[in-house]
Structures are given as structure tokens and as C-alpha cells.
């Protein structure tokens, strides 16, 4: 495909994250695949590379500042082995951004993407009685899936390169999101939540790896001002529309 020429841009959306697949297989798909793609982009002079990474690369942590900027270290892999691939791809593309000066590289790190899609945050918000951790109610940021598409379009404009956090219509407590959707959260004390979830995952009842509990325990919020100023990105969807997007028919 590259050899045929006239590739105007590469949009990398293919970060594979399947908690059930074999880690080695995913790793080679993700890392080797990305390395190959970047090599081709340089060899065949593709002018633009866009990576859809995620704000999750910073990782939810108790010592996180309220809003992380793009320079914050990517620490997600420390607690989440499952996030290692994404962090590594983000690093690969960051290096490429500085090394391949002829290619305009953009890394987008959107907050939790919600919509009629099957990713962890949307799946979680669709559970009628979602588990929450007793005594924890972190502020969360969500973005409408179509706003994410808009951000990719904004990144494709000529002249734009760099790393950008992509933020939706503001921050709300997790409890406010669940209340808006009419869910009935089940309060679980955090010391027992871990063993319960780990058992449920092994039995195939739940598709959420244990480490993802940290997302409903600690904050992982980002500062999206750079994308606003340099990409001119503004979310179109309001908070209510964004939250209710999870219940849209697919």
C-alpha cells in the first residue's frame, strides 16, 4: 500500500487492548506493528502521522496533580501491566516525532471516550448496577466519540505537530455521571473489591482487569488547554449529551 504511494496521512488507531488475549501476541502486534508502520512512513515520505493514544497513559494515581499537562511522565504501566503496550507505543511515536523532522507527527491523548462503543469506560457506564468503591468518588473527564473524531480531523490540518491532551466538556464526579444515567451503584469496600473482581475476571463474569479499579479510585485528569490553543479544538457535545452517548444504539 505504501509502495503504491500517495499516502497522505497515517492515522494509528490500532492499539490492541483485549484483556482476554495472550499478552505476548498483543505485544508483538502492537509494538512490532507500530515500529514497521513508522519505518514505512519515513521511507515513503508520508507527510502526516496521527496516533490516537489516551490520557490513561499517565495513570490514575493518588499523587496525581488535579490536571496533568502533556509533560507529565507516563506512569500508567507501573500499576497496569495491560497499559504497557499503549505507553510504549506513545513513547515510540514521541521519539518518532522528534527524530523524523520531515513528518508532521501528532499524538492525541483523549480522556475516556464514551459512546455506543465497546471500550472499558463505555462498558462500565452501561452496567445497570455498577460497582463503585466505598468512600471514593473521583472527578472524571469524558469525551463524546464524535468529538474525538473531530480532534483527529483537527490534527490532520497541515502544519500541526506535537502532543495534545484532548478534553471533553469538563469534569464531574463519577457519582454525578452514574446518577445522570440512572444507574444504581453498588458500594464495595476497597480491600475486598480487589479479590472479588479478580475472581470475577477469572470466572469470565467480568471483563475488567483488577488494575482498572484505580480508575474509579484515583483522579487521572488532564489539562486540555494546549489542544484548544494550538489545534483550535473545542468539544461540540455538552456534558449531558456526552454522558448519554453510552446508551445510544450502536
Amino acid at each position: 500500500m505504501f509502495r503504491a504511494g500517495e499516502v497522505d496521512a497515517l492515522i494509528h488507531l490500532g492499539v490492541m487492548h483485549d484483556p482476554r488475549a495472550r499478552p505476548a501476541e498483543i505485544y508483538s502486534w502492537n509494538i512490532t506493528g507500530t515500529t514497521k508502520l513508522l519505518e514505512y512512513c519515513q521511507a515513503y515520505r508520508v507527510p502526516k502521522v496521527v496516533l490516537l493514544s489516551s490520557a490513561n497513559v499517565y495513570g490514575p494515581r493518588p499523587d496525581n496533580p488535579q490536571f496533568l499537562t502533556e509533560d507529565a511522565p507516563l506512569l500508567a504501566a507501573q500499576r497496569f501491566p495491560q497499559m504497557r503496550d499503549l505507553v510504549e507505543i506513545d513513547h515510540l511515536v514521541s521519539t518518532f516525532l522528534w527524530r523524523a523532522q520531515g513528518v508532521e507527527t501528532v499524538i492525541l491523548r483523549p480522556v475516556h471516550i464514551v459512546g455506543p462503543v465497546h471500550n472499558a469506560p463505555s462498558n462500565y457506564l452501561r452496567i445497570p448496577r455498577p460497582p463503585v468503591l466505598l468512600g471514593f468518588d473521583p472527578m472524571v473527564q469524558l469525551i463524546h466519540y464524535q468529538d474525538t473524531a473531530d480532534a483527529i480531523v483537527a490534527a490532520l490540518a497541515p502544519g500541526r505537530r506535537g502532543i495534545y491532551n484532548i478534553v471533553g466538556p469538563g469534569e464531574v464526579p463519577l457519582s454525578a455521571v452514574l446518577r445522570e444515567l440512572g444507574r444504581e451503584p453498588v458500594q464495595i469496600p476497597h480491600p475486598v473489591a480487589r479479590p472479588i473482581l479478580s475472581l470475577a475476571f477469572r470466572l469470565g463474569i467480568s471483563s475488567f482487569p483488577v488494575a482498572e479499579l484505580d480508575f474509579i479510585r484515583y483522579v487521572c485528569m488532564v489539562d486540555g488547554r494546549r489542544a484548544g490553543a494550538e489545534l483550535g479544538f473545542r468539544p461540540r457535545f455538552g456534558l449531558r449529551e456526552t454522558i448519554h452517548a453510552v446508551d445510544e444504539p450502536a
Partner: peptide, 26 residues
């Protein structure tokens, strides 16, 4: 203190009252 966000209830109540994790960025 960094320890507070790991403590149930204190984790979000402190934040809602405007008392924030003591990172230099904050």
C-alpha cells in the same frame, strides 16, 4: 499529604472542600 487520596471518604471529601493533594503543579 499524598497519603490522603488513598483513604476512603477523606479522598473525595477533602477535594470537594477545596483541600488539594500537595503537588507542586497544584
Amino acid at each position: 499529604e499524598y497519603f490522603v487520596p488513598t483513604v476512603p471518604f477523606a479522598s473525595y471529601l477533602f477535594a470537594r472542600w477545596g483541600q488539594i493533594t500537595g503537588t507542586p503543579e497544584n
